[in-house]
Amino acid sequence: MLNQTAANVVGSQGQENHEQSHPRFLAHHFHSSEQQFDSGKLGMWLFLITEVMFFSGLFCAYAVYRSTHPEIFIYAHQFLDANLGATNTIVLLCSSLTMALAVRSAQTSQQKMLVVYLTLTLIFAAVFLSIKYVEYSHKWHAGLLWAGDFHPVAGHEHAHDGDGQDAGKTTVMPRDVGVFFSIYYALTGLHGIHILGGMGAIIWILIRAVRGDFNAEYYAPVDFVGLYWHLVDLIWIFLFPLLYLIH
């Protein structure tokens, strides 16, 4: 089968689509919409892997300091408001639900619902960032910044004691508490930047959804942005207990 006459021809993948009209969003170098979709999906998953590796460096730093300086984490977590953190967790979970419903709407060509769900997702994301802003600004005023600028203001120290039992108890501040806040700001800050990036992506597909680009035949961008959004949500699911719920 190796000679010229008996040559196999490569292009058998492309047969099914040649007689039909060329799909609107099919790039020239793909044989079929399925091939394009599979490529995009695999590419998106690989991108998500790079995101996981990106955050894993910080999780690793967290693990190292948590194991070498557990007292810092036990002392410092009381400055984080578990109620606000829990609210934000619920907000992000809701946004993941609306995002999933948006993908479903795109797959079933329900354009109006797609627009509604994407808008809802955007609103949830904005609520998340607003709550995060409240938390950040409170810490800013209390002087609870990263290690280099860690100057806690007296009187703010017991503001957010979760269960109320330890409220009156004065604990001696261990050394190097600032490192906890460094890790806190690095993790939540990076996560916040990813939320912002996700909002940008959602706005982009929202514009395209309003324009009517998506339907049951072509919904890949909605799907891929959805995957990204779920990953950002998932990272927060890990951040919340690791930072807010330390005992």
Partner: peptide
């Protein structure tokens, strides 16, 4: 794909260390 993001976060932390003094 697997290793380069770790360099990314390492250098991000290095920049933050120099610019802000995060102390990691």
């Amino acid at each position: 794909v697997l290793a380069t993001p770790v360099l990314g976060i390492t250098l991000t932390l290095l920049v933050a260390e120099r610019a802000l003094g995060i102390g990691i």
